[in-house]
Design a protein around this nucleic acid. Sequence first.
DNA 1: TACGGATTTCAACATTCAATGAAATATAAT
DNA 2: ATTATATTTCATTGAATGTTGAAATCCGTA
Lengths: 242, 242
Amino acid sequence: MKVRTAPARKRSSGGLPKRGPAPRDDRNGARRGDTTRLAILNAAERCFGEGGFDGVSLRTITEVAGVDLALANYHFGSKDNLLREVIARRARIVHDERIRALEEARRLAGARSPSVEAIVTAFLEPLLRRLINRDQGWQHYASLVSQLDISPKFTVLTGDVLDPTALHFINALRLALPKAAPRAIYWGYMFLLGSMVQVMSATGRIERLSHGVCESDDIASALRELVPFVSGGLRALQTAPR
Amino acid sequence: MKVRTAPARKRSSGGLPKRGPAPRDDRNGARRGDTTRLAILNAAERCFGEGGFDGVSLRTITEVAGVDLALANYHFGSKDNLLREVIARRARIVHDERIRALEEARRLAGARSPSVEAIVTAFLEPLLRRLINRDQGWQHYASLVSQLDISPKFTVLTGDVLDPTALHFINALRLALPKAAPRAIYWGYMFLLGSMVQVMSATGRIERLSHGVCESDDIASALRELVPFVSGGLRALQTAPR
DNA sequence: TACGGATTTCAACATTCAATGAAATATAAT
DNA sequence: ATTATATTTCATTGAATGTTGAAATCCGTA
């Protein structure tokens, strides 16, 4: 009589015998539990984005997803891992598209360096375009990433996601701003990140401040201000500090 | 025989009969529980700053403070209220000092408007100066405020704290940048906030990105880049968008 | 149709959580 | 010293947390 408890799942590495779906061999075969997986992923994205990682329980998430509580651990192993997969799903897409946009900007610029505006736009557009289109999944993702980006606890996680992209754009900015010190470029990139995060984490504060002149979810309008702001700010770094 | 359970504490408003220290009538009389209160306040500040509000329990906080668990609720009523008091304690100081710095900038400028740099500096310095001095309490406070600023859950709380200050500086910026549209000013202020938050939430990412060229806790260096960046960005808003 | 693995369900586990009640102690005023 | 109040301690509440067995169900395949 077999024990039947551990279907030989091989987790990411060093796997202790745990349960969970078998590893995915071919990349297009849809499986039975995939709709469940997706439902949990989407619910987690929404809940994490609204309440933060620690502010939301797996019970709430699976309830929103309309599935049994135990399925979260079956499909994702742990709450931490669920967060990782929520992030990874969209981070890949943004990263690829940013790199492609940067290459396209380089192509258009020919032999010279792309303008600061072009570089900044290549960085901002891939994500913000989704928010302009009011894609709810992306909105929750943006809110979540913003929160993780600020929390010291999650530096490792967000670093793995954001840092590879960062280096490409920092190099591009270095070429576009030859007179700026390296230190200035690094901090400038952080400021770019911070300004973007402020746009993405639609907390509704700007409505109160502006008495309705601006709206948190009018990302298109925000982007029209954000690109010149960041570009002008980066250019100012060339001359200002001794 | 009296019941002795409710020492007639009047809570902030509509008070149900709860326990807790009596209201403070005169403003200089130190009381017995004040050292406990302070210990909890400081421990909460540190823990919230490192782990986030939902990521830290009252147990951890009181343990760090070296006091009994029940004292947290005795002195602060609830975890939410503890957070509010942690914020309020330092927020008042920063607000007052920012307003004073702005008035000083106005005085120095005479009849004309202060420069954008002066306004931005008046906003940034009061808080960042404490971080430059490596004041640990302020460091934790800054990290905490940064996280709350991004979380949709805490918009009301951070709004009450930050918005009054904001309006003063938005008005000042409007005068300093007469050609900028109001919409641009409001967004510009948000970008200023975002860039500052990125400096305050020392997640250590910039070390990794720059391979040690920049350091998260070298706030003085960051400030030297931040002021020209934000000022240049704000100025760019005057001309750029149609 | 029967087998076997993948998925789902159900019921718990052991902790941990914020909050409170009531008794004990400390402190100041009388 | 006595009384009243402020503070601290201790024990416990009921609910919520992430995680895990073990059985039940589903479904493609032999």
